[in-house]
C-alpha cells in the first residue's frame, strides 16, 4: 500500500476542518460551542485558500538577498487570508458580545431553551396564547 500523495493529505485536512466546523455549528447545543465551531470552519477555509496559492519549490513572497530570482508562491491569496483572519476575530468578538447579552437576558445559553423563551416572549408581546407544544398530538392542543 503506497501512502497517499501529499496534496491529498493537505486538501483532505482542510476539507475535514470545514466539514467538522459545519457539523459542530449545526449540532452544538450550546451557543458558546457553536461560536468555537465557527472558528474552526473559518480556519479550514483559510487553509484551503492558502493551499490554492502554493507553488512547489517556491519561496516566501518576501524579497531578501538570498531569494532574488527564485520562484515565489502566489501573494494574492495570502493577502486575502490575512484580511480574513483579522475580520474573523472581529466577528468572533461581536458574536461573543451578543452571547453575553443573551446570557444576561435569559440566564442560559442552551439553544433550544433560548429559542423557546424567545418564542414565548414574542407570543406574549403579540398578545397570543402561549403555545404549549408542537410535539403534542393535535387533540391535546388548546385550539
Amino acid at each position: 500500500m503506497t501512502p497517499p500523495p501529499i496534496e491529498f493529505l493537505l486538501y483532505g485536512g482542510a476539507l475535514a476542518l470545514v466539514a467538522l466546523g459545519l457539523a459542530g455549528l449545526v449540532m452544538a447545543r450550546h451557543l458558546f460551542r457553536s461560536i468555537l465551531a465557527l472558528g474552526i470552519l473559518e480556519a479550514g477555509a483559510n487553509l484551503l485558500l492558502v493551499l490554492a496559492g502554493y507553488r512547489a519549490g517556491g519561496v516566501a513572497p518576501i524579497l531578501t538577498p538570498g531569494t532574488l530570482g527564485q520562484p515565489m508562491v502566489d501573494p494574492v491569496p495570502q493577502a486575502l487570508v490575512l484580511t480574513a483572519i483579522v475580520i474573523g476575530v472581529g466577528v468572533q468578538a461581536l458574536a461573543l458580545a451578543l452571547a453575553l447579552r443573551v446570557h444576561q437576558a435569559y440566564g442560559t445559553l442552551d439553544v433550544a431553551e433560548v429559542r423557546g423563551r424567545m418564542e414565548a416572549d414574542t407570543d406574549a408581546a403579540a398578545g397570543l396564547e402561549p403555545e404549549t407544544s408542537r410535539d403534542l398530538p393535535a387533540v391535546e392542543r388548546p385550539s
Binding site: V59, A60, I62, T64, G66, T67
Partner: peptide, 9 residues
C-alpha cells in the same frame, strides 16, 4: 523550520 528553510524570516 526557520533553520530548515535557511531563511531568517
Amino acid at each position: 523550520f526557520a533553520a530548515l528553510f535557511a531563511s531568517p524570516l
